[in-house]
């Protein structure tokens, strides 16, 4: 465990930064900007993980998210309307309920965190923790590790099957039309 006043300062910087960036994700017009904010939020969390001594997990989180956010930004520009946010618009539904649910989730979880009694048994040094994770991955938890690998492989195969242009019934976009936003129009067709 790393300790000292610098760690506290760094933690609060990362924490406030990642929460604010996480909030900004849903408060910006541009989707690319939203992806960058989300990446900033993830980087902050990765930094906190490193401060907590889980060096490997933190750095891998940051490494993984860089690629994911780029894919996300590209998908947005490919498929979503108004991705650049040049015309400000609000694309939300059930805003009040959602905000309420978010606040309830926060209060409940934060309450658990504050009220709960957690035993004080700190983890070993980061270097030892990284080595431990490696031994665990290829030792006792090998089955879990392998299952994760097989899950990822089947995800890849499934993704290619679903997203491929040639669908089960011929070319996927054949005869596809944009659905109307009003349900009545759909019934009338």
């Amino acid at each position: 465990m790393i300790a000292g006043p610098i760690v506290d300062v760094a933690f609060w910087l990362f924490a406030i930064g990642s929460v604010v960036a996480g909030y900004r994700v849903f408060r910006t017009d541009s989707m690319v900007r939203a992806a960058f904010y989300l990446l900033a939020s993830f980087t902050g969390v990765g930094g906190i993980l490193v401060l907590l001594g889980a060096e490997f997990l933190g750095m891998v989180l940051i490494l993984m998210m860089a690629g994911e956010m780029l894919v996300m930004a590209i998908v947005m520009v490919m498929f979503m309307m108004n991705p650049a946010g040049l015309n400000p618009m609000v694309m939300v539904h059930q805003n009040r309920i959602a905000a309420g649910a978010g606040i309830v989730a926060f209060v409940a979880l934060a309450g658990v965190g504050l009220v709960g009694q957690f035993p004080d048994r700190p983890a070993p040094e980061p270097a030892a923790a990284t080595a431990q994770l490696g031994t665990e991955l290829l030792g006792d938890s090998m089955l879990v590790f392998q299952t994760a690998g097989v899950a990822l492989l089947s995800t890849m195969i499934g993704a290619i099957a679903i997203a491929g242009r040639r669908g089960r019934y011929g070319v996927a976009e054949d005869g596809s039309v944009e659905p109307p936003l009003q349900p009545d129009e759909e019934r009338a067709r």
């Binding site: 990642s18 994700v25 309920i97 959602a98 209060v107 979880l109 658990v112 965190g113």
Partner: peptide, 30 residues
């Protein structure tokens, strides 16, 4: 520990809000 848990709860709460309120698929995934 409590401070980190509160930060985690805040991120989770924002995530719940986003997943329920956003119309765009990608924003929902965020």
């Amino acid at each position: 520990t409590e401070a980190v848990l509160i930060v985690a709860a805040a991120l989770f709460g924002i995530g719940v809000y986003g997943a329920l309120s956003q119309q765009s698929f990608v924003m929902l995934m965020m």
